[in-house]
Design a protein around this nucleic acid. Sequence first.
DNA 1: GTTGAGCGTT
Length: 422
Amino acid sequence: MSHSSLLLRYSPTTHLSAPSPSENKRKNDELLESGLAKTKRLELKQKCSDLIVLGLPWKTTEQELREYFEPFGEVLMAQVKKDPKSGQSKGFGFIRFGSFESQMRVLSQRHMIDGRWCDVKIPNSRSMEGQQHQVPCKVFVGRCSDDITPDDLRDYFGQFGEVTDVFIPKPFRAFAFVTFLNPDVAQSLCGEDHIIKNTSVLVSNAAPKTDHAARHGFGRGHLRDAGRPGMGGYGPAQHGYGSQGMNGGWGGQHQSGRGTEMPNLAALGTSLGIGGSMGQGGHQGMAGGQGPNPAQMGVGALNLGLNPLAVAAALNQAGWGLLSNLPGQSPDTPMAYSQAGPAPASQAAQGPPSMAPSSQAGGGPAGGSFLNWMNQGAGAGGDAGMPQPPGSQPPGAGAGWPQRSDQKPTGAAYNRNPTYDV
DNA sequence: GTTGAGCGTT
């Protein structure tokens, strides 16, 4: 199924069980609420944070660092970490942008600074924060009867949107988890009663996993009620996208080996507004060797000139888990995006290696990487939309990463084998 | 005066 058809099919009002008038009112409230939550989600997601710049030349000064990044937008802070005694640079620094758009733009590519390729990332000290704002794709299904199978749940909930995972604890505990591709679908179902196999089940928010120790021992005793493990449920808790813990969050894996609770491209599409608009690469207007001025590019995801795949990759490395190693993913979903994006003419040669499961070996730079491919413009002409400060685009770039003899490939771009986490 | 994966004295 294509992504677009999924979105078209999604309707918050499509439910089998007829809601009572009072339920309808509540439903309206919830829709309102969900809108607010969505807004908040957006705000949370668009907060700037400091960015770490790895791989700086020893000689690069803070002034030079700032000057390099200024074409991307207002630079609020630029610092090069140095040894206090010698004053010698440690080879990395931090920058802070005034706008999220600038941040995204910078995160989505590598940077040639003073002759070295540098990686810009969300620093580890901050990367967990993003995970607290993840959108729950998973719902809790309470009051399950013991004759409801995973397939039953998959079939039933499949009418609302693509189901990416189903989990029924064993031994039987009268509840289950269903994960949707689209977090909006998941949210739209929360608080509703549904009838499956003549059983009325209650759908509510899946609580973040916070207490691994308790779960380990099948800690039924500490559950607040038999139908609701952990905290959350629906209601006021819907306001809170931030999970309490730094670990777990919304990303329970259920030991199923194909965890899909992380935010995905569908979430991106709905919350950043880029879904279904993957056109022909970047803005041609940015092409040309002139000094780019990314700050003048339109704001709003649709006008960012960002390749959605690039955004996904950026968010991924920003700790939002959009891409991950999921060897067990269904084979059809990635294609929905690979088709939507600009198809590289020579995709076999320079497409994201992760598209091909066979390219997992080693995880080295051989054959490039997703980010690699992305930064080449993700295909013909795609990099026209990427700001390329003077000097950042070496001659011949686009045919592959420049491989400097004195600089080995660094960072996640080479260590990962991202596959689409959708 | 060297180095090249990492993660921020305040």
